[in-house]
């Protein structure tokens, strides 16, 4: 977090936010402005020393989001081609997270209205789903198969061809 504040944008003002589990974070105002929710809070003079409480964002995803916003705010205008590519690389590395964190980022970025991060997380989720059987998707995302065997059989019959990327295991999909 401390490192993230080094390359602040033009605003010197630091905005404090508090995660649902009580951790405090700081970021430059320009970074906080990338979040629609924080921007509105700042405009309404709700940003004080106690910090803006984010009731549904835990510390772990919030730390990532602060990093993301700080990086993007520092590089937001007049990008050279090299800088744009560097930002792209940053994004690619940034979103290489496990699916629990990806889920938290999806929900938190949506809640906080961080559009760039929202798109990044949605695209990453779609990329993980692409080309996988239902069973592989369940494994990837830790989802329990809650269909009854009868329902499953019916689903598989609807579009039989789609489930045959690999040999079906004991259960149909």
């Amino acid at each position: 977090m401390a490192a993230a504040t080094d390359d602040a944008g033009d605003s010197n003002e630091m905005i404090r936010v508090v995660s649902s589990d009580g951790e405090h974070f700081e970021m430059p105002e320009a970074a906080a402005n990338l979040s629609l929710v924080l921007r509105h809070m700042i405009e309404d003079d709700c940003a004080d020393a106690a910090g803006i409480p984010l009731a549904v964002v835990a510390a772990k995803p919030l730390a990532k989001i602060v990093d993301y916003c700080t990086k993007h705010a520092a590089k937001s205008s007049g990008l050279t081609i090299e800088e744009a590519e560097e930002l792209k690389r940053f994004d690619a590395e940034f979103i290489e997270v496990d699916t629990d964190m990806l889920y938290d980022l999806l929900v938190a970025a949506d809640f906080m209205g961080v559009e760039g991060l929202s798109k990044l997380a949605v695209q990453r989720t779609a990329d993980l789903i692409k080309g996988k059987t239902p069973e592989q998707n369940r494994e990837t995302f830790g989802i329990v198969n809650d269909f009854t065997p009868e329902e499953e059989e019916e689903i598989c019959k609807e579009n039989e061809w789609a489930f045959q990327i690999t040999k079906p295991p004991s259960r149909l999909c």
Binding site: I129, K132, P134, N137, F141, D146, A162, C173
Partner: peptide, 15 residues
């Protein structure tokens, strides 16, 4: 972001 028919059909069979 999942334009493929096959991906969408398979997604419906996850849960």
């Amino acid at each position: 972001r999942l334009p493929s028919h096959a991906d969408r059909v398979r997604l419906r069979a996850v849960c």
